[in-house]
Write a protein that binds this DNA or RNA. Sequence first.
DNA 1: CCCATTGTGTATCAATCGGTATATAAGACT
DNA 2: AGTCTTATATACCGATTGATACACAATGGG
Lengths: 193, 193
Amino acid sequence: MGRPREFDMEAALTKAMRLFWRKGYEGTSLSDLTDAMGITRPSLYAAFGNKEELFFKVLDRYDRETSAFIQGALNAPNARAMAEGLIFGACAFHSDKRNPAGCLMVHGALVGSDESLAVRRETSLRRSELKGRITQRLKQARTKHELPQGADPAALAGFLVAVLRGLAVEAASGARPVDLKRIAAVAMAAWPE
Amino acid sequence: MGRPREFDMEAALTKAMRLFWRKGYEGTSLSDLTDAMGITRPSLYAAFGNKEELFFKVLDRYDRETSAFIQGALNAPNARAMAEGLIFGACAFHSDKRNPAGCLMVHGALVGSDESLAVRRETSLRRSELKGRITQRLKQARTKHELPQGADPAALAGFLVAVLRGLAVEAASGARPVDLKRIAAVAMAAWPE
DNA sequence: CCCATTGTGTATCAATCGGTATATAAGACT
DNA sequence: AGTCTTATATACCGATTGATACACAATGGG
């Protein structure tokens, strides 16, 4: 019951995501958001809570956006294929011209004023969760002898995410697809065996 | 002539640098700055121009801060020593508890509102300048046969700065010194020869 | 039809943003 | 001393920040 919502929440969320992705959490104002989403301020607050809650919903939306290539990489048949899937998948992701430059999870809220602490902690948490999932995958890879006995899953996972962050920063700085692929190719030379 | 300045410009600039370093350009307000620098708003504007000019002067100050280990690395006797100097130098830099977390040149102004475009372009420019210097160093390294003939100086330089950016993001996320060093060690495994 | 419920639009809130006008204070120079 | 120049301090500017009060519109249930 009640008056039906006149806008598409998912479409509005996508608009918000692209804006946060481009300008970051604090660089995006409510006026920016309502303009892009095509709704009024009260509608935004009624539908999404407030700016912070909207950003959290956007993070979920972003996770759905990126889960395809990340989940695909984690399901790769062996450790090297997983590493390649992650790194070259990130290259393709950052080379897709339909996407804003860089990675929302990296520069969406990396630093900022004290008011945005909760937002920074959330993105930081999600970044470390990705590292954790990669670490777990590499641990089981070692038991399956997909990795040399001396290889350190945590160290390799740390390196992988560091390269992903580096690719994201370079992409946000306007790196071309070929630049990203070159970085990826050199990085893969570090992979054991 | 005229009334003498009552504060130490260099000390005030250092305070400003540490604040921008921690909160980023747009995350740092003028009130934050004047509070930390211990001066009033008109004094700040008389001495440094405006927020944007102050940030540019802070970037110069930051370059002086980081030039030690970077210049040292670029002057290393061979290409591998340069790479190690850069990567492990960055680890040490980010592990120094006297420094704010992360890298001002990376997260000081990576994204933001349209008003800060000039600031983002400047940090982006300085980042690419570093890559250029590394590339030049690697080109002369190849002529001196410090690198295999097949090695690509531009690709290696791109990889190096990507790892530096990755280390910066991880450091900004609270990575411990040992985490950074592990990333560095794996990265160096990608180095040719 | 009438009412309860919920979304929308206007107009506005206090707080903060970067930036200054104005007056005064403190030194150097003649 | 008197004057010129520059720094400091107070108080303020218009604009924008995130967030709402209020009135009204649109639906479903009785």
